[in-house]
């Protein structure tokens, strides 16, 4: 049993509403696992529970051999489980480079250093530049992050997650709000990331999901109704009824 991320009977309710209703799932190292499902299926809640920004009612999450069920978001990041946000979450006032360098800083020694300017730490900046180069944003490094285009902000979001040194990325709708061209850049980017990172991808864009995913799980009203390779899931009658049928 060598899953990098292992989820057992995870639950979360708001009053009578079961948003996460007993999810169990294993994601082996190296897999790109897509979670799809209609609006309101509980995809973002699920990501919040995995990243630690939301406490689960019950169930267990193991990551890289350790029980992380009760760990904070900060502690999970330090273990190598990083996330991106559905609604772009960057430091608008910082430069693009500094956004990423801050993430590098979080895992490179103490941040209780008061007397040397962080912006001129070449080691932090060099690693940040590597992450930016991976998402094709190197030429934007010195721009103020808030002035980037929407697609570029989505790329930056991924660079920040990479810079945390994560083993696994939880990407919450990285294509949200992007146009066709911007989307193509991001899809290409995720295809490259697959070779180095385990990824859980929450996504609405079916074209992207079926192009990228090794396996797909379908989330409907808090339950996983199917998990398997993209072709099998696409053919699954329950999935067609619950989701794809409506959409296609």
């Amino acid at each position: 049993m060598s899953a990098l991320l292992s989820i057992r009977d995870l639950r979360k309710s708001y009053g009578a509403l079961k948003v996460t209703d007993g999810i169990s799932l294993d994601v082996p190292a190296g897999e790109l696992h897509a979670i799809i499902g209609p609006n309101g299926a509980g995809k973002t809640t699920f990501i919040h529970q995995l990243s630690g920004s939301l406490k689960s009612d019950s169930g267990a999450v193991h990551f890289d051999g350790a029980d992380i069920t009760r760990l904070s978001m900060v502690a999970r990041v330090k273990r190598g489980l990083a996330r991106s946000f559905q609604i772009t979450s960057i430091l608008d006032g910082f430069s693009v480079l500094e956004n990423v360098a801050t993430a590098v800083q979080a895992r490179s020694g103490s941040s209780f250093r008061f007397l040397t300017p962080a912006a001129s730490e070449t080691a932090l900046n060099a690693e940040a530049m590597e992450a930016l180069a991976r998402v094709n944003l190197a030429d934007r490094a010195h721009r103020q992050a808030g002035t980037l285009s929407h697609g570029e902000k989505r790329q930056l979001e991924i660079a920040i997650a990479l810079a945390t040194g994560a083993k696994m990325l939880l990407l919450d709708e990285p294509l949200a709000g992007t146009g066709h061209e911007e989307g193509a850049i991001l899809i290409d980017l995720m295809r490259q990331l697959k070779s180095t990172h385990t990824i859980m991808l929450i996504e609405h864009d079916m074209e992207a999901v079926f192009a990228l995913a090794d396996r797909v799980s379908v989330l409907v009203y808090g339950k996983l109704i199917a998990t398997g390779d993209p072709a099998a899931v696409r053919a699954d009658p329950a999935v067609r009824a619950a989701y794809l049928g409506e959409d296609a």
């Binding site: 979450s89 800083q105 008061f114 300017p117």
Partner: peptide
Amino acid sequence: SRFGRVLRGTRDNRVRMQAIG
């Protein structure tokens, strides 16, 4: 400094700073 950068980042976007550790 590094410290000041964390402080400023937290001011601008607390959740983002937690999400990077």
